[in-house]
Amino acid sequence: MADTVSVPTPRPGAPAGRRRSPQARPHVRRDHRAALFFILPALLGFGVFYLWPTIRGVYLSFTDYSLLTPPAWSGVANYTKLIGDASFWRSLAVTLEYVVINIGVQTIVAIALAVLMHRLTRSSFLRGVLLLPYLVANVVVALVWYWMADYTLGVVNQFLGWIGFGPLGFFGEEHLVIPTIALVNVWRHMGYTALLIFAGLQAIPRSLYEAAAVDGSTEWRSFWRITLPLLRPVLAMVLVITVIGSFQIFDTVAVTTQGGPADASKVVYYYIFEKAFSQFDFGYASAMGVALIVILAGVSLFQLRLLRAGESDLS
């Protein structure tokens, strides 16, 4: 894959390339022009396929739009409805529970896996195996587990039976359904997350561990004193990405419980989908989408500040 990326020779006539004096002012101007050149394709894609649809979505949130008839301006009606909609707030709480379990378990497991791999083996086969679940589409993963975790016939409950636990209604009990869905997605993502963290681990100089070992530090101590602090920038990035992805949990719910039982797994994204595409209330769905964006932006800002990932040698 790498070959496809590293595009061959630089173009000799490239615009700003030839000037020799790295003096302050021309340097800056050259920066500007080069920046424009580099940013343009992405900016175009961003404007057309992210920004514009988002603006249109925000517009739709102020309308009454049923997909089949043109949108009609309705002011803040959707937003006032949103504030009084208990189902919306409940779906937010459900989503939050999911995110906490999903991210909490996933991050811990991934760090553990990465550290174990890092300290135990160079086997790329092993890393490849752990990445396998990520290769299977979301919905299929959900279906496979939905079936394996069945209350009556599922193989998971058979295992539990052998070690003396009664069958559990993983997807069918109100208090178990969200943890179950969260863990299913941990299964799919743990290897991938571990691999990202593993890459971060490899950048930590070996000499630090060796020195620590000479000083009599245990593996456990080294982990807390060397690994974790040095891993922070990578962790920050991994967390920002996974937390936002986690908030957008949808496929697994759509394929399995569809929000049940008794709305116990009706996450906010599924609620939006239901409003938009099964009740055709696209205006209201858009308003919920806007609320979700605001919430996510808040969470990410908070996270970035907490982890100080925004720090760079440029700022």
Partner: peptide, 27 residues
């Protein structure tokens, strides 16, 4: 590279990360 508005544009890009795909698929 240094260019005016860089951090603002980057932040804008970053916020796109938070836009649910379902929200922009229709437009």
């Amino acid at each position: 590279l240094r260019w005016p508005g860089r951090d603002k544009v980057f932040f804008l890009f970053l916020t796109a990360l938070m836009v649910p795909p379902i929200f922009i698929h229709l437009p």
